[in-house]
Amino acid sequence: EPLWIRPDAPSRCTWQLGRPASESPHHHTAPAKSPKILPDILKKIGDTPMVRINKIGKKFGLKCELLAKCEFFNAGGSVKDRISLRMIEDAERDGTLKPGDTIIEPTSGNTGIGLALAAAVRGYRCIIVMPEKMSSEKVDVLRALGAEIVRTPTNARFDSPESHVGVAWRLKNEIPNSHILDQYRNASNPLAHYDTTADEILQQCDGKLDMLVASVGTGGTITGIARKLKEKCPGCRIIGVDPEGSILAEPEELNQTEQTTYEVEGIGYDFIPTVLDRTVVDKWFKSNDEEAFTFARMLIAQEGLLCGGSAGSTVAVAVKAAQELQEGQRCVVILPDSVRNYMTKFLSDRWMLQKGFLKEEDLTEKKPWWWHLRVQELGLSAPLTVLPTITCGHTIEILREKGFDQAPVVDEAGVILGMVTLGNMLSSLLAGKVQPSDQVGKVIYKQFKQIRLTDTLGRLSHILEMDHFALVVHEQIQYHSTGKSSQRQMVFGVVTAIDLLNFVAAQERDQK
């Protein structure tokens, strides 16, 4: 057995438009009618409502009807409940999964919650491996369901041993009777949507819809739904939504950006999952974080739909894509998950301010006199920076000697690579993860907040409520011999709460 199987392995699926269902090699399930009293909570997966979006479509000038398939009504709160249950049931049916076995899954959280929910009911041990950027709410729900959680670096490539995929496979090879159901490759993922989600949409719309818009992560949702719609409703256009920084969209030119990270969760990847059939997507749109969270908040405030950030991405694209539809036509959007997962993220004004998705003037509360002053007023001194090749031991000596707790790590040209902190280095040394002679590049981390000289002290204040420091950066445009230009970030300084307090105190003292 291989040590790991690539999540982007070539698909062996034989589905073709027009091929009889009787030739399918898979076990198919028909939607079942729910009894009045459910035998367990797993029976509350599927049969989610279709809700008309009344205000947002009109606000953006849509002539067509805009409908939302509300997947956050599933038992675990997301569309991923469907595939989690289906993968477990299919693994039980073919004898792969037996009582007492362990389920391991690399996930952005929602599939993990679905699997942990099913594992709690069915009696399996469950280990979820997820990147650090995923919300604390997801972690809390997983723990409450009895799952064990392993976190991995957000910026690790999918084929790196440190990625959530790599760590999951390492655990599988170490733990007896453990299984990775593997949402990236498992046919049960798109089949769950082909058999149930798509049929529900067709039934709820009486077979009449002209466009379907869905955000894409593993691709199982859009693949399964689109294949069924292509068979039953061939005139329906399928629109895929991919965040900026991901590479799922086609044509490839759409993916060209210097951005590699994004805040919206559960969609987009740096590889093409095996289950994603991009041939059934008629057109791709890219979405960005700001519009995703703005539209998610709009869905909550104006439509009462308590959905997550990827739902915002989907609707932001839908109001663009559906401009081509006329009166009497219908566009369906998939709202994948609930706001429950993001209470401390985009639902929080403070978080939105820190990330730059909300401006101070958007909030009406009274601010102190210094709130709208610029960061450049602080008069920061030149920063202490270190090269990635310097040793951890030497870096600790320098920081202690100069009285700093942290320093930016830059390359020879001064471009920011990340940050090192005294606390992080000492804990890594004590844990045996690094040696004093190791290069400081081994303990770089990139989960820090950046701020510009033109940003306000109010925004800085919000950042420092949650973080010990902020890195002050400025952009530099560099022209190359080819005539092309590129933008790079340079370090201007490091600012802490002490710097802000000293500035405010000094100004008030001078005024007296």
Rank of each mutant, 00 (worst) to 15 (best):
W351H: 07
L254R: 09
M298K: 13
N288G: 15
F503R: 15
M419N: 10
T314V: 11
S427L: 09
K512F: 08
S313F: 01
N424A: 14
R350D: 09
E401C: 12
L353T: 14
V409H: 01
A301Y: 13
E377I: 09
T294P: 01
N255S: 07
C392G: 07
D270V: 04
G312R: 06
I238E: 01
N341T: 01
T314Q: 14
T260G: 15
C392F: 11
Y262E: 03
G328L: 01
L325F: 10
G441P: 05
S437M: 14
M343W: 01
F271C: 01
P408G: 08
H462Y: 12
P336R: 15
E252M: 11
K359E: 14
V473G: 11
K320N: 13
P273S: 01
A292G: 08
P436T: 15
A322C: 08
G418P: 04
M343Y: 08
S437R: 11
E252A: 11
C392S: 07
L305R: 04
K366T: 14
L347F: 06
A407G: 12
S485V: 04
K484A: 01
C331H: 01
K355C: 06
V443T: 15
L457D: 01
D362S: 01
Q302M: 12
F285D: 11
K366L: 12
A301F: 12
K355I: 05
T391A: 08
K512L: 11
G432H: 14
T364I: 14
Q323F: 12
T454W: 14
E253N: 15
D405M: 06
R459K: 13
K512E: 13
T391K: 04
L399T: 06
L422S: 09
I396L: 12
L422Q: 03
S287F: 10
E290L: 14
W284K: 01
G393S: 11
Q478V: 06
V317F: 05
K402I: 07
P408F: 06
G309F: 01
G414T: 11
C331D: 03
V241Y: 05
D411V: 08
G403C: 12
K484Y: 12
F346Y: 06
T274Y: 03
M419I: 10
F492G: 11
Y262A: 04
E465A: 07
F271N: 01
Q302W: 15
V473S: 12
Q329P: 01
P383I: 09
D270R: 04
V420P: 01
L276S: 04
R297D: 01
T314L: 01
G403W: 15
F503L: 13
F357R: 01
E265F: 03
K433S: 08
E365C: 11
H474Y: 12
N424M: 11
A382F: 14
T482S: 12
F404E: 04
D270M: 06
E263F: 08
S427I: 15
P408S: 07
L429F: 11
L335P: 01
L347S: 09
P388T: 06
K283M: 09
D289I: 01
R374G: 10
V332A: 11
D411Y: 10
L378T: 01
V420W: 01
D411F: 08
D510I: 05
Q478E: 07
S437Y: 10
Q511T: 13
L305V: 10
A301M: 14
Q489T: 15
L457G: 01
L422A: 15
K367L: 12
S437H: 15
S485P: 11
M490N: 15
L358I: 01
C331Q: 01
V434E: 15
V443C: 13
R488Y: 14
Q259F: 14
Q406V: 01
E291W: 09
W351I: 01
V281D: 04
A292D: 07
H480M: 09
V415Y: 12
Q447T: 13
I451W: 01
S348Y: 05
C392P: 08
T389M: 14
Q256Y: 10
Y479K: 15
T261A: 04
K442A: 10
T454R: 08
S381P: 13
W351T: 01
L453D: 01
A505P: 01
V440R: 01
P368C: 06
I390S: 09
F492W: 10
L363R: 08
F285S: 10
L325N: 01
G414I: 10
A316F: 11
N424W: 15
F346P: 01
S287V: 08
A407L: 14
Q476L: 13
M352N: 04
L426S: 13
G245I: 01
E361W: 13
L399V: 08
L429D: 14
E360F: 13
G240S: 07
Y479I: 10
F492I: 13
Q256M: 08
N341G: 04
M352F: 05
Q450A: 09
F503W: 15
Y262P: 06
T389H: 13
V386T: 15
T294K: 05
T344P: 01
S481H: 14
T389S: 08
D467R: 07
V504N: 12
W351V: 01
R278E: 04
D438F: 13
G423S: 08
G423C: 05
D289K: 04
L500G: 06
S348M: 12
L276T: 12
Q302C: 11
Q478P: 13
R340D: 04
A382T: 14
Q256V: 13
A470D: 01
I451P: 12
G441W: 06
W369P: 15
L417E: 06
T294Y: 14
V443N: 13
Q447N: 10
Q376P: 01
T274V: 04
G414P: 01
K512S: 13
I390L: 10
V440E: 04
V280K: 09
T279V: 09
V241F: 08
A301G: 13
G304L: 05
G418Q: 08
F346M: 10
L453C: 11
G403N: 01
E377V: 15
D349G: 06
V280W: 10
M425V: 12
T279E: 15
W370G: 01
H372E: 14
T456Y: 09
G312M: 04
R452G: 10
F469M: 04
K320A: 09
E250M: 10
C331L: 09
I416L: 11
L457F: 09
I272R: 09
V440W: 04
T456W: 14
Y445Q: 08
E303W: 04
H480V: 09
M298Y: 15
G441V: 07
K402L: 12
E401F: 11
T389N: 13
Q256N: 14
V434A: 15
I416G: 10
K366W: 08
P251H: 07
R459E: 01
Y269I: 01
L335A: 06
A407R: 03
G240T: 04
K449V: 05
D362K: 13
I390W: 12
D455G: 10
L299V: 14
D510S: 09
K433V: 10
E265T: 04
I451E: 01
S461C: 14
D499P: 13
R350S: 15
V443S: 14
T391Q: 01
K345I: 05
S461Y: 05
S427P: 12
G403L: 01
H394G: 01
K367H: 01
S437K: 15
G240D: 09
E252K: 11
E397T: 15
P408T: 04
L358A: 15
M352W: 04
L500D: 01
T364H: 09
V410D: 08
E291L: 10
D270S: 06
I396S: 14
G414V: 10
K433F: 12
K286H: 05
G432Y: 01
A292S: 07
G356C: 06
Q302L: 07
M298S: 03
G493R: 04
D405N: 01
F271T: 01
V415P: 03
V280I: 04
L429S: 09
E401A: 15
F293V: 05
V241L: 01
L417R: 10
C331G: 08
F295G: 07
G414D: 08
A506Y: 04
W369A: 15
S481K: 14
C392I: 13
W369T: 01
V332Y: 01
K355G: 08
Q326M: 15
V494L: 12
I390N: 13
L276F: 07
A296V: 06
V264C: 10
T482D: 06
H468I: 13
Q435V: 11
Q406T: 10
V386K: 10
L417K: 01
D499F: 01
T314R: 01
H468C: 01
K345G: 04
I300R: 01
T294F: 13
V264Y: 01
S486Y: 11
D499A: 06
L276W: 05
Q259A: 01
